[in-house]
Design a protein around this nucleic acid. Structure first.
Length: 299
DNA sequence: CATGAGCGC
């Protein structure tokens, strides 16, 4: 660490910021003489933390005097770093930081995806609020219950993978007339709407089994739900009985609180029946569920 | 205890 000349704030022609209150001095032109003073010189801090300041001032008699100040400054932070930390500073940059200027950024934000694994008790499949296991008496151990909520098809694909989920306005898209063939643009209709490959020209038409149904039938009313039971919870609870076409939990529009009841619609009446038989009177979230046929909605 | 939302042509 060599000699350093401290840069004063402002230009060299400016009056140094003196602590002396010149206005209290008798000499009127004391301020002007200040220009003649050499700038202060600062050395260090050296390895022992010693900093020396040499500056010049006029004393009360108008004589130029040299003032030297010696200060013990705090040791540099570097001295407190561990050996390992100092060692790391010499490491070459890696990852995204390779392209960074030296010292441009101290930290980098990683965009790497990290999957978290949440441990579960052995044998359990996923979170559930069910007290006990209604499925243990169901005689369907390990049944694969893959039900698409978009088209209602069972065991074929999940909702997120539904071939029809990209289609806007499903009820219209699934009308019985075949889609308009379009030879000009691949994959789009005349209106520019995307058409799934299976629906394009030449693709075979949907069988009735494939077609999603607007099913307001087989509606089951569920009451005595705890107030923090939401639709995903209901779905998890009821989907094991069969294809669920809709779940609904009545919510107070103002408070967002559950009103404690909801509806579950099944694609198949038999599944709804079994759900009623199994889940009515069932303990769920410390409450006893009431599950029964819903009376059709007034419209 | 309790029977859903929206949709506007």
């Amino acid at each position: 660490m060599g000699m350093e000349t401290m840069q004063r704030p402002g230009s060299a022609t400016q009056k140094p910021a003196n602590k002396v209150r010149w206005g209290e001095l008798e000499e009127d032109d004391a301020e002007d003489l200040d220009f003649l003073l050499p700038p202060p010189v600062v050395t260090g801090p050296d390895e022992n933390g010693i900093k020396k300041i040499t500056e010049f001032k006029f004393n009360d008699d108008g004589n130029k005097v040299k003032i030297t100040t010696t200060i013990q400054v705090r040791k540099l932070a570097k001295a407190r770093l561990t050996k390992a930390a100092i060692e790391r500073r010499s490491w070459p940059k890696f990852g995204d930081a390779v392209h960074e200027d030296v010292g441009a950024r101290l930290t980098m934000v990683s965009t790497e995806e990290i999957r978290l694994e949440r441990p579960r008790p052995p044998g359990s499949k996923e979170d559930t609020k069910i007290l006990g296991d209604p499925m243990s008496t169901l005689g369907k151990p390990g049944a694969v219950l893959m039900v698409c909520r978009t088209c209602g098809k069972k065991g074929d694909h999940w909702t997120s993978k539904c071939p029809y989920k990209d289609l806007a306005a499903p009820p219209e898209s699934f009308s019985d007339k075949p889609p308009t063939p379009d030879t000009a643009t691949v994959g789009t209709s005349k209106s520019g709407t995307y058409i799934h490959p299976g629906q394009r020209d030449g693709a075979k038409q949907l069988g009735s089994e494939m077609r999603p149904r607007r099913n307001e039938e087989n509606s089951v009313r569920v009451t005595n739900l705890s107030e923090d039971t939401r639709e995903p919870d209901l779905l998890e609870l009821f989907r094991t009985f069969g294809a669920v076409s809709r779940v609904y939990v009545a919510v107070d529009q103002k408070t967002g609180m559950s009103r404690g009841f909801g509806f579950v619609n099944f694609v198949n009446k038999e599944d709804a029946e079994r759900a009623i038989n199994k889940l009515n009177g069932y303990g769920y979230d410390n409450l006893i569920l009431r599950v029964e046929w819903a009376t059709p909605r007034a419209n």
